[in-house]
Simulated scan of single mutants.
Amino acid sequence: MTLTDTAWPKAVLWDMDGTLVDTEPYWMAAETPLVERFGGTWTHEDALRLVGNSLEGSARILQEAGVDMPAQDIVEHLTDEVLRQMAEEGVPFRPGAQELLRELRAAGVRTAIVTMSRHRMAEKIAGLIPFDAFDAILGGDDVARPKPFPDPYLAGAAALGVDIADCVALEDSPTGLTAAVDSGAAAIGVPHFVPLSNPGAADMWPTLEGRGASDLAHVWRAHRAGAGEAR
Rank of each mutant, 00 (worst) to 15 (best):
M1W: 12
T2E: 15
T4L: 06
P9D: 05
K10H: 12
A11F: 05
V12E: 00
V12N: 04
V12Y: 01
L13I: 10
W14S: 01
D15T: 01
M16D: 04
D17C: 03
G18T: 06
D22L: 02
D22G: 01
T23K: 07
E24A: 01
A29R: 15
E31V: 10
T32V: 15
L34C: 11
E36W: 08
R37Y: 12
F38Q: 09
F38E: 09
F38D: 11
H44S: 13
A47T: 11
L50T: 14
G52L: 08
E56G: 13
G57P: 09
S58M: 07
R60C: 08
R60Y: 13
I61R: 15
L62N: 11
Q63V: 13
E64V: 12
P70F: 10
L78E: 15
E81D: 13
R84P: 02
M86Y: 02
E88L: 13
E89V: 07
G90S: 07
G90F: 02
V91F: 06
P92Q: 06
Q98K: 14
E99I: 00
L104P: 04
R105F: 00
A106D: 03
A107F: 04
G108N: 03
T111Q: 00
T111S: 01
I113Y: 00
I113D: 11
V114E: 06
T115E: 05
A126P: 03
A126I: 04
L128F: 01
A133F: 00
F134T: 03
D135Q: 01
A136Y: 04
I137A: 05
G139H: 01
G140A: 07
D142W: 01
R145L: 12
P146Y: 06
P146L: 02
K147D: 01
K147R: 09
P148E: 10
P152W: 00
A157Q: 03
A157E: 05
L160R: 02
G161N: 04
D163Q: 10
D166C: 07
C167G: 07
C167Q: 05
V168L: 10
E171S: 09
E171M: 04
D172H: 02
S173H: 02
G176H: 06
T178A: 12
A179F: 12
V181G: 11
A186E: 10
A187N: 12
I188A: 08
P191S: 03
P191G: 07
P191I: 05
H192P: 04
P195D: 08
L196Q: 09
N198A: 13
N198D: 14
P199S: 07
G200T: 06
P206G: 02
T207C: 06
E209R: 14
E209D: 14
G212P: 06
D215Q: 02
A217S: 01
A217N: 00
V219C: 01
V219W: 02
G226F: 11
G228V: 08
